[in-house]
């Protein structure tokens, strides 16, 4: 019985994998692909691994460890990717209707220019960041 429940959980998990793959293919730009790629794979892998753990109880501990690890690290890597993608947003053709981050970047850059014109040593805020 536990085996059938576990296998069904794995099946649901792999459906979420499929969903994230379809999202990666269908979504129009990198940010939206990230939305599908991160969320669906996180829940998908959790269900898939818990399902395998139910089928083989001696795998359960490690499977849960891996699921917890994925739940912790997957948002971090997608956050790093989103930051990188924001530097390339024009080239990516990403449509961002309100873009608060770009507005604040521009405000910071304008303030830096003003400070430099005033002769003070303005700290460089945007160290090593592509803005095209």
């Amino acid at each position: 019985m536990a085996a059938i429940i576990g296998a069904s959980l794995s099946l649901v998990g792999s459906l979420f994998f499929l969903l994230s793959a379809i999202g990666l293919l269908r979504m129009p730009d990198a940010f939206n692909r990230m939305q599908a790629g991160t969320k669906a794979t996180t829940l998908g892998s959790m269900l898939f691994l818990v399902g395998i753990g139910l089928m083989r109880p001696d795998f359960l501990g490690r499977a849960l460890l891996l699921a917890g690890f994925i739940a912790l690290t997957n948002p971090v890597s997608s956050n790093a990717l989103a930051r990188a993608a924001h530097g390339y947003r024009k080239r990516l053709g990403a449509k961002l209707a309100p873009d608060a981050l770009a507005e604040d970047d521009e405000a910071l850059a304008a303030a830096a220019v003003r400070d430099a014109a005033a002769g003070s040593q303005a700290p460089r805020v945007q160290e090593g960041r592509h803005v095209d």
Binding site: G44, F59, L81
Partner: peptide
């Protein structure tokens, strides 16, 4: 078409592949 898109795909593929390795273990 851009490196970012490829890396996003790679990120998702890493998770799927490690789940598949556990399935292979089973």
């Amino acid at each position: 078409p851009w490196a970012i898109d490829r890396t996003v795909a790679l990120d998702a593929m890493t998770i799927m592949a490690s789940s598949l390795i556990v399935a292979f273990a089973l």
